[in-house]
Design a binder for these strands. Sequence first.
DNA 1: GTGGTCTAGACCACT
DNA 2: GTGGTCTAGACCACC
Lengths: 121, 121, 121, 121
Amino acid sequence: MKWKLDDSMPIWIQLAEQIAQRIVSGVYPMGEKLPSVRELAADANVNPNTMQRALSKLDDDGLTETNRTSGRSVTASVEAINAERKKMAEQQMKRYLEGMAQIGFSNAEAKKMIELGEDEE
Amino acid sequence: MKWKLDDSMPIWIQLAEQIAQRIVSGVYPMGEKLPSVRELAADANVNPNTMQRALSKLDDDGLTETNRTSGRSVTASVEAINAERKKMAEQQMKRYLEGMAQIGFSNAEAKKMIELGEDEE
Amino acid sequence: MKWKLDDSMPIWIQLAEQIAQRIVSGVYPMGEKLPSVRELAADANVNPNTMQRALSKLDDDGLTETNRTSGRSVTASVEAINAERKKMAEQQMKRYLEGMAQIGFSNAEAKKMIELGEDEE
Amino acid sequence: MKWKLDDSMPIWIQLAEQIAQRIVSGVYPMGEKLPSVRELAADANVNPNTMQRALSKLDDDGLTETNRTSGRSVTASVEAINAERKKMAEQQMKRYLEGMAQIGFSNAEAKKMIELGEDEE
DNA sequence: GTGGTCTAGACCACT
DNA sequence: GTGGTCTAGACCACC
């Protein structure tokens, strides 16, 4: 998974979101160590300070924990991760309903479509 | 509604999509004339050739019709527009389900969430 | 009231605390505008970025609100301010009890002393 | 316990206070010998003259006694130590009440808070 | 090596 | 003018 940054939002927020995604989807597994700030920064091609800010947001959100001297690791708390997962799911839902609204579908219609459609797989 | 372009896809495709959206959502109403290529191009801040390519894609898709002498107008065909609307709705749905999958929700779970949640408003 | 900074803690935290104090004690009244970041930074003799970080913490804590273009003002929410006031009072209490403990007084003794003593004024 | 010095007060006063604390809290027990001036000075990373001044203040206060030949020891007088302990307790109390006043609590309120709160442990 | 802090200076959008 | 973001580079404490 590559970093995908645009200028529609502060970079550090986008970084935080994408790292959160990796955590929630298990790319960075629960309890495991994260790459160092400098590594991540180099990988994402941003200034270490910017990456730091992103990570510090994850700390605030309880998704990561930092051990001053020995790096930073993903939280071991299932609750914290599930809370984030739920938050993300709600975002997805909101985006879907808004997208549908823009095409002229009411929330009810949007829901109905999902119930019926997409029965493949 | 402003133009939103990035470099993840050819610009003319993004333009076509966004104009299609405007058509489907009634910004450019059925049967009415579209702004001229030059106007649209200036507004979107792209080269007229690029905009031309976007519009000719809409022609191909049956969403617009060009009349040699009097410019280009939105199709008057309800079917054409509904087809496009349906295509877009399916895209939205697909995007939603994929997004949810990435967070670890199965299609079934994603459907259930939509049925239950988002009852505000 | 002058700024008082030492190197026992990050400067930005000390700044945030001292501004919070000013808010709670009414130096910066509820709903009123705060001096600009640059002003405060100059006054405290720190880099604007450092002051910004302090203020951004106050925003996070709900003690201030920032209006992108027209400056930052103290929250108008009584609850937010009372919550902060309570938090500070608890800190004071904790500091007192710990100080007393270090001199060899139990919590109970420390409480008794406060009840009896200090009847001057 | 480490030495904690700032430039808000003469260093020798801060040293005296911190040694007094150690005496009152039993780190340097009643009647026992103190480390030598040189030792203490080296530990606190100050000039021996400064430390000397701090210790002679303790002598003045009756907390320590110096025996020409055999160094300096903590007083064996319970009264002297209790007096110091009481003085410190009053300082703590004063600091607490002043802190609370600054947040907008009257002395009465500050007392009430201590009576009710902090029932943990 | 790790995370964290601070400064200096530039740039942006908004009004 | 306002707040906010980003970069570059230095320094610190910890192990």
